[in-house]
């Protein structure tokens, strides 16, 4: 196993004539929390979308566990053990909270169309197991009580937690958080930070795109600073905070 869980080599994405990600090199060590920060429009979400297959790179290589995974469809990327959350929360609002997390067990269960339609859910072992596992992950993020609620009726903070529970239910090896604290109040942000640290302790590698600097500096092992799609600095939170290039990027000349 290579030391780097995820590696981006000369990754490039061009929209029309605009270069969103410009020959980016970035590596993420196994079992750490790596944050990607940078001013608005620096290309952070684009990087996530490239890694998870929602966008196709214009050039470069994405290596996961030492293997190139470029150009795979999102559901194939998910099957490799890469989970993600979305900047604008994407939950299944017409389903219950528990069902949302049950969808997260998709890759860990197997019944197809035929097996699914032959017997009602309460006679099927796998269905019970899926529901049990989902409850476990729901408790993990502290939402066991909300299981029966309609997911669309949850406040934003809970929706972000739910999205995290759904991602965790996949039992991924790598979890990408896209601005998990955006729209959350101070208390919720702290809870989210604690949750992310807990996830790291479980051995899951975390990559975080976030604007809340307090959160980033609190929980990250490594911080990478991106501007105009380029990597401009990298280091521990303490190092990055005093880097002159970073200060320029954020505050201007």
């Amino acid at each position: 196993m290579s030391k780097n869980h995820l590696e981006l080599i000369n990754l490039r994405k061009v929209f029309g004539g605009v270069v969103a990600v410009d020959d980016l090199n970035l590596s993420v060590r196994r079992g750490t929390i790596t944050s990607i920060i940078g001013p608005n429009g620096a290309g952070k979400t684009t990087i996530f979308n490239l890694i998870t297959g929602y966008l196709k790179p214009s050039g470069g290589i994405i290596k996961y566990d030492g293997r190139a995974v470029n150009g795979k469809k999102p559901y194939r990327v998910a099957a490799l053990g890469i989970a993600r959350t979305f900047q604008n929360v994407q939950i299944f609002s017409d389903m219950t909270v528990l069902e949302n997390v049950m969808v997260g067990r998709h890759l860990r269960s197997h019944s197809g169309l035929l097996r699914s339609s032959l017997l009602p859910p309460f006679f099927r072992k796998e269905e019970k197991k899926i529901s049990c596992d989902a409850e476990k992950w729901l408790s993990f993020v502290g939402m066991a009580e909300e299981a029966g609620r309609s997911a669309g009726s949850l406040p934003l903070g809970s929706q972000r937690m739910l999205e995290t529970a759904r991602a965790l239910a996949m039992e991924p090896n790598l979890l990408l958080f896209d601005e998990p604290a955006s729209g959350l109040n101070a208390r919720e942000t702290v809870a989210m930070g604690e949750l992310i640290s807990k996830i790291k302790e479980m051995g899951i590698t975390v990559v975080l795109v976030e604007h809340d600097m307090e959160l980033v500096m609190d929980i990250s092992d490594t911080v990478s600073v991106i501007n105009f799609g380029k990597h401009i600095a990298r280091g521990t939170p303490a190092e990055v905070q005093v880097n002159p290039d970073v200060i320029t990027a954020y505050l201007g000349e």
Binding site: Y75, A79, F86, Q90, F92, V103, L107, A167, A169, M170
Partner: peptide, 10 residues
């Protein structure tokens, strides 16, 4: 509900 989210869980 959300095609993107569905694909993200496989």
């Amino acid at each position: 509900g959300s095609e993107d989210a569905a694909e993200s869980v496989g």
